[in-house]
Design a protein around this nucleic acid. Structure first.
Length: 772
DNA sequence: TAGTTGGGTTTTTTT
DNA sequence: AACCCAACTA
């Protein structure tokens, strides 16, 4: 029983209490994942439970992956049979098998937020809803909220009596459901709701899964919504072996429908439940925990617990208030660079966390300027990019001809000279004859009104049909290559003078290698399953574990992670807590923000730095925000040098690295705010953002990007005739020195330091560099 | 039909 | 500041 000896008493209790409902209240950093993983191991090794009978549900793919890895590491045999997945992936997998029982094809597609919006836009037009008054977003979030509560359109309509707005929403909801059904599509909320519907309508199916999942574990239970609650209840109804793990203080997804009552009232739901509290924290120093505890005490709706550690007090907490957001970003970057130089921290041990994704940009600029490797986690979803969505729409149309949205997206992409008028007529015909948009295209010659446009439609239809016929024996990657080839998608991009054409091509290469990976990893690769995987993954996570990079992300994304050095940026009222929360008259909004702050603080192991700016640009206007109330809720004695150390001594030798040329001010003004002054030109946001744009557009990659793409399309271009170190000439940028040549799937990627235009990354085939 | 321009708008967080 | 959309022009 050696592996369980390292657990503390409470953790052991969580591991060994295998029968019946169990509620584990696990504070931040209390080793809950560890306990869960050991529990799985214990069930298999000591209780002779078949791994196949275990279900572990997490919220994020990241958490699922981590759990998977750790289970694989600790369970000797059969670990791969343990079902570890997110809620959405679990439901998608179940529906893939049984969707026909509730009237869907099993190759249904999953709609993301953009798809939903497109559908809703069309509906608003049809129902003549003025989107100035009632926005698509508003309707969609109302629908989402309804689905999270398992409210059907009919039920919603009943509740809308006497409320005109609600009635309009009810009508839109009804139409929306019909549209998705017609397209054989489900949105994220549907995945959960339809799974519940399936289980309710088919007792045999439910019984089969109840029989299979005899031991169920749910992580982050505080984030479950009502639909998820019912799903879990149904699955666990027979065995009652349900172990939920959560922390009411870390509930930060109310906006997504999370119902904190699920965890607060678990004991009422399951009166015989064993309740276990994990309060010993293994992550943070006492100072950090004291700060977190003091902060969260200001909340009322909580079970109440107090984290403790047997680590020492540790470093004091730092607080800096800077003049501008630029200085804030700059100081953070500078501090990280110093820690690295002094050998106090690796880059990968540092993380900058913020409230909104928009804050990432300004930080990114500073990281680029300082030449420090970084990685932005989250932000614009890779799969939401235009070029990716276009190509996926081709695959969707090949896979599922009923997805009108996909077909309409690509009918004129790339340009085929098919305009809105033609599309509208085809759409009308489809509606009249009750067929899909694509089927209407197939019968384009029967549509009298479209005239000569038939000639433009036919080649498109032909192409899709050819691709469909290849589907049976082609891999996803081959199919994708064919789509790119036949549509000339990349050729068009190369020919275009669009500024970010090369980034788009890179993204497509990324998609190709993703498809190739999928082909290799999946046990039974199918196009539908690939599309599903892609739909449920928030972002391509190429955060190579070994890469030494500073991580930048929102506090939401950081949940479940830990870092030795954490910077919380933008600690200002109006930013964090957000304006929405401070202006709201619902006090629970502010409490949710406070829980988020609690999450942020408890990510830190050794050092915590809170920063804010007196002045910052938000959506084009300058804001002057006071220091966050959350900062003030932390006892002053936990900070270094008392409270409100506005500026610490500057590190002069370090400044020299940044400041090009002489800067007399920095020589003898250590305490002056402007102790670290960069030439105006460099600081100017305009100039910087121009220079920086290509990097931002690429989003997830950083300076020394992750390479290692191997498979993909055949070479599009020959080997360049220049090598690293050579001098080259570019049509637009003039002369420069080649810094690096990297082989990418389609082409060579060349990094050049131009004498006049700075450093650029480009593709050899269309940069047309001349060796000189 | 396609590209451009000017005007209006903005969820904060994510599966 | 950035994005999206509608109206306008080539």
């Amino acid at each position: 029983m050696g592996i369980y000896d390292t657990l503390n008493q409470e953790q052991k209790k969580a591991v060994f209490t295998t029968q019946g409902p169990v509620l584990v209240l696990a504070g931040a950093g209390s080793g809950k994942t560890r306990a869960l993983v050991h529990r799985v191991a214990y069930l298999i090794a000591e209780c002779s439970v078949n791994p196949w009978n275990i279900l572990a549900i997490t919220f994020t793919n990241k958490a699922a992956e981590e759990m998977r890895e750790r289970v694989d590491g600790i369970v000797g045999f059969g670990a791969e049979s343990v079902w570890v997945a997110t809620f959405h992936a679990t439901c998608a997998r179940i529906l893939r098998r049984h969707a026909q029982l509730i009237g869907y094809d099993t190759n249904f597609v999953i709609y993301d937020t953009d798809d939903q919006k497109a559908v809703m836009k069309d509906i608003c037009k049809r129902l003549q809803i003025d989107t100035k008054v009632l926005k698509e977003r508003t309707i969609l979030s109302a629908i989402s909220a309804a689905k999270e509560e398992l409210t059907t359109p009919a039920e919603y309509e009943l509740g809308a009596a006497g409320d005109y707005m609600k009635q309009r929403i009810a009508a839109a909801y009804r139409e929306y459901e019909a549209a998705l059904y017609k397209n054989n599509a489900m949105d994220f909320d549907d995945l959960i709701a339809k799974a519940v519907e399936l289980f309710r309508s088919s007792p045999e199916t439910l019984a089969a899964y109840q029989n299979r999942f005899r031991y169920i574990m749910i992580d982050e239970y505080q984030d479950t919504n009502t639909a998820q609650f019912h799903l879990v209840r149904l699955l666990a109804e027979k065995s009652k072996n349900l172990c939920v793990v959560g922390d009411d203080d870390q509930s930060i997804y109310k906006f997504r429908g999370a119902n904190i009552r699920n965890i607060l009232e678990f004991e009422q739901q399951y009166p015989q439940a064993a309740v276990i509290r994990l309060e010993q924290n293994y992550r943070s120093s006492q100072n950090i925990l004291d700060a977190a505890n003091a902060l969260i005490c200001n909340n009322t709706a909580r079970k109440g617990k107090s984290l403790w550690t047997n680590k020492g007090a540790g470093s004091p907490i730092h607080f800096w208030q800077l003049d501008t957001a630029y200085e804030e970003a700059n100081d953070i970057v500078e501090d990280i660079a110093r820690k690295k130089r002094e050998g106090r921290a690796a880059y990968a041990e540092c993380a900058v966390l913020f409230r909104t994704n928009a804050q990432a940009r300004i930080l990114e600029e500073q990281f680029i300027l300082a030449g420090i490797p970084y990685l932005i986690v989250g932000g614009v979803n890779f799969y939401a990019r235009k070029e990716i969505k276009d190509l996926l729409a081709y695959l969707k149309t090949i896979d599922n001809g009923r997805d009108d949205l996909a077909a309409m997206r690509i009918i004129n992409v790339p340009r085929r000279g098919i305009g809105v008028a033609t599309i509208a007529r085809v759409q009308e015909y489809a509606l009249e004859n009750n067929i899909s948009f694509f089927d209407a295209l197939v019968r384009a010659n029967e549509i009298a009104s479209i005239g000569r446009a038939v000639a433009k439609i036919e080649p498109f239809v032909k192409m899709i049909q050819v691709l469909r016929s290849k589907q049976a024996y082609y891999s996803v990657e081959e199919l994708l290559c064919d789509v790119i080839e036949m549509t000339g998608y990349i050729r068009d991009l190369e020919a275009s003078d669009e500024e970010d054409a090369k980034n788009r091509i890179e993204n497509i290469d990324e998609l190709l290698s993703k498809a190739a990976d999928y082909g290799e990893m999946a046990q039974e690769p199918t196009l539908s399953a690939f599309l599903e995987e892609v739909a449920l993954v928030a972002d391509i996570d190429n955060a190579a574990a070994d890469a030494d990079k500073v991580l930048l992300m929102t506090m939401h994304s950081a949940k479940g992670l830990e870092f030795a050095h954490v910077y919380l940026a933008g600690m200002e009222d109006g930013i964090f807590p957000s304006h929405m929360a401070t202006a709201s008259d619902d006090l629970t909004d502010l409490e949710e923000e406070r829980r988020l702050a609690y999450v942020g603080i408890t990510r830190a192991k050794e050092e915590l730095t809170l920063t804010c700016a007196k002045q910052r640009m938000v959506r084009g206007e300058t804001q002057y925000n006071p220091v966050s109330r959350f900062v003030e809720e932390i006892p002053k004695e936990l900070f270094d040098r008392g409270f409100f150390v506005q500026k610490r001594r500057k590190f002069r030798e370090y400044d020299e690295e940044f400041v090009s040329g002489d800067n007399p001010q920095s020589q003898d003004a250590p305490f002056q705010r402007s102790g670290f002054v960069r030439p105006k030109a460099m600081l100017s946001p305009k100039k910087t953002s121009l220079e920086v744009k290509p990097f931002i557009a690429r989003g997830i990659e950083s300076l020394n990007g992750v390479s290692g793409l191997s498979k993909g399309m055949p070479e599009a271009a020959g080997v360049p005739d220049y090598r690293e170190g050579d001098r080259v000439r570019h049509m637009k940028y003039g002369e420069g020195t080649v810094l690096a040549i990297e082989q990418k799937p389609r082409d060579y990627q060349v990094t050049v330091a131009f004498d006049g235009a700075g450093q650029k990354i480009m593709y050899a085939a269309f940069a047309k560099l001349k060796k000189i």
